[in-house]
Amino acid sequence: MQNRPIARIGAKILTPPLMLFALYVQFHGDLGPGGGFQAGVIFAVGFILYALLFGLERARRAVPPGLLLPLAALGVLIYAGTGVAGLLLGGSYLDYNVLAHEPHHGQHLGIFLVELGVGLTVSSIMTTLFFCFAGRGR
């Protein structure tokens, strides 16, 4: 799709708001519909749109594929680590009440970290999946 100016410019205009929207969904999940799973998918769609219109090579330069799997693992680690932090602070596994000086803040912090981990894992895995299928043919 190298020679379709309308699609290319459309994608150029659309990609940044798409990623901003993903971040909004990620951090607004407490108040409305949304959360790590949806945000991760939307964030990955931003990269996929870029890759579809500007070619796999440029997308690979924007997101190095070697970085994606470590990021996905980091997401799971953040999630599991939040649980371990609860253990170390004297609560039980994945008990957020003890994370801060006050249970409500603890819950808030815990949910934030957990959703961050989920979003990181989902977005990196979805982007990886696309790169795997798209890169196979050549």
């Binding site: 959360g35 799973f37 991760g40 998918v41 989902v122 895995i125 979805m126 999946l129 795997c132 299928f133 196979r136």
Partner: peptide, 20 residues
């Protein structure tokens, strides 16, 4: 179901990889 949907696409992708 929310989590099942995302897990579902991950496992579908695995099936598609096997098909390839």
């Amino acid at each position: 179901i929310l989590t099942a949907i995302v897990v579902g696409i991950a496992t579908t992708a695995l099936g598609l990889a096997l098909v390839v």
